[in-house]
Amino acid sequence: MNKNKILLVDDELNLRETISELLIYQNYSVKSACNGQEALDLLEYWTPDLIICDIMMPVMDGYTLHGIIKDIHSLNSIPFIFLTAKKEHNLMRKCLLDGADDFISKPFKIKELTSIIESKIERFSKIKNTYTNLYPGRKKVFLHEINTPLNGILGPIELLMENPKELDKKEISAFYESIKISGERLNRTMQNIILYQNLKNNFIEFNLNSSADILNEFLKTKEKILKIYEGQEKRISFEIDKATIKINSEHLQYIFFELIDNALKFSSNNKVIIVSGEQFNNEYYELVIRDFGIGFSEQELNKIGAAQQFNREEREQQGLGLGLFLSKIIIKKSNGVFTIVSKENEGTSIKIFLPLCDTPILD
C-alpha cells in the first residue's frame, strides 16, 4: 500500500524535523523544504497528497508559493494548509480568502495537526478517485489527439474491407503505411498520458544504479525519429562522446526522442538541429540539443508546464504538450539538471547534465 505523501515547508529546522518525525511515525511519506523556492523545486518531480507550509520564510514566503501553485493545473487541487503565528492573523485571513484549505496556529497540539491532515487527505483522495484528471490540458486538444489518429486508422481499414479487389498493391501498401503512422501517433499519445499519470502519482521507481551508453541510445533514437522525418537525416547534426550514464536506457531514449522531435517540429525543413555531448567533469556528462526554430518568448518560458502549448492553432501543432515537461521530470528524478535558454524566432538550446557512471566505456 502506498503511503500518503506530505510536503512540509518551514524555515525553522527544529520544528521541521519534529513535525517530519511525527508524520513519519504515523506512516506518512514526508519531504521537507526550508522555503517556497525549494518546495517548488521538489514539486517539479514529486507530487504530494498534502502541503503544510509556514507563511513567513526567506527567499520565497508561503503566500507567494500558494499563489504560484494555484496557477499550476496539475497541483492546484492538492490541499494546502498554512502554519501561522498569531501575529500573522490578517495575512492568514487573506490566505484563506485566496483559497487555502486550512491553517494551524503555532504552537499547535499534535492531535489537532493529525486530525486536520487526515480529513484533508481523505477529501483529496475522494477528488482523485472521482476526477482522475487524466490529461491536464484542454479537453478539445485531448479529443483531437485521440480522434485524429483513430480516424487515420479506421478510415483506411474501412476502404480496404469494402474494396479489396479494386485496389492495386501500391494503394494497399499506402493504406497500410497510413494505418501504421496513425497507430504509432495514437500509441505515443496514450503512452505519454500513462507516463504523466505514473510520474504525477510517484508510481515509477527510479533505480539510480541504472546505466546506459549515451551514444548507443542516441543512435537508436535517431533511427526511430527518421522513420517519422523520412529523408531528413541531414537535419540532425551530432557529435556525442561515448560515456556510460546513470539513467535507465528507456528513459534516456524517451528524453532524446521528445526533445529532438520538438526541435525538428518547431524548426523549418531547411534548419539543422545540433546534438552534442561530452564529459563535463568527473561527475556529470553534458548534453546539448540546439535548434534554430521559432523559440519561446520570455513569457512563454516562464509558463512551460504539463500540457502547455503556445499558439497551437497558428503553428498547426500536434501532440499533447507533455514531452518537454515529462523529459524535465525524468531528468530531475535521475539526479540530473535541466536548463533551457530560448529566444523568439531565433531558436532554443536545452542543456542537460546527467550523472556519470564510475566505470567509463572503453573503445
Score class of each variant (00 low, 15 high):
225 I>E: 00
225 I>T: 00
225 I>Y: 01
226 L>Y: 03
228 I>F: 07
229 Y>A: 07
229 Y>W: 13
229 Y>R: 08
232 Q>M: 11
233 E>I: 14
233 E>C: 09
234 K>L: 09
234 K>F: 09
234 K>Y: 11
237 S>G: 03
237 S>C: 11
238 F>D: 06
238 F>K: 06
239 E>W: 01
240 I>E: 00
240 I>V: 02
242 K>R: 11
242 K>M: 12
243 A>L: 08
244 T>W: 02
245 I>T: 02
245 I>W: 04
245 I>E: 00
246 K>F: 11
246 K>A: 15
247 I>M: 14
248 N>L: 08
249 S>F: 08
249 S>D: 07
249 S>C: 11
249 S>N: 12
250 E>C: 11
250 E>N: 15
252 L>N: 02
252 L>M: 03
252 L>R: 01
253 Q>L: 06
253 Q>N: 13
255 I>N: 02
256 F>C: 04
256 F>A: 02
257 F>Q: 07
258 E>Q: 13
258 E>G: 06
258 E>P: 11
259 L>T: 06
260 I>P: 04
261 D>C: 10
263 A>I: 06
263 A>S: 14
264 L>I: 10
265 K>Y: 05
265 K>F: 07
265 K>C: 07
266 F>W: 13
269 N>S: 14
270 N>T: 06
271 K>T: 15
271 K>G: 02
271 K>Q: 13
271 K>Y: 05
271 K>V: 15
271 K>A: 06
272 V>F: 07
273 I>L: 11
273 I>W: 04
273 I>N: 03
273 I>R: 03
275 V>K: 00
276 S>V: 13
276 S>R: 06
277 G>E: 03
277 G>K: 04
278 E>Q: 13
279 Q>G: 01
279 Q>V: 13
279 Q>C: 06
280 F>E: 05
280 F>I: 12
281 N>S: 08
281 N>C: 10
284 Y>F: 14
285 Y>K: 08
286 E>Q: 13
286 E>S: 09
286 E>P: 11
288 V>R: 03
288 V>C: 12
289 I>M: 00
291 D>S: 05
292 F>Y: 10
293 G>Y: 02
294 I>Q: 05
296 F>Q: 01
296 F>P: 05
297 S>W: 00
298 E>S: 12
298 E>H: 10
299 Q>E: 10
299 Q>T: 12
300 E>W: 07
300 E>Y: 05
303 K>T: 05
305 G>R: 05
305 G>K: 04
306 A>Q: 03
307 A>V: 07
307 A>M: 03
307 A>G: 04
308 Q>M: 12
308 Q>H: 05
309 Q>I: 13
309 Q>T: 15
310 F>N: 11
311 N>H: 14
312 R>K: 15
312 R>A: 07
312 R>E: 01
312 R>C: 03
313 E>N: 14
313 E>P: 09
314 E>S: 14
315 R>Q: 15
315 R>F: 11
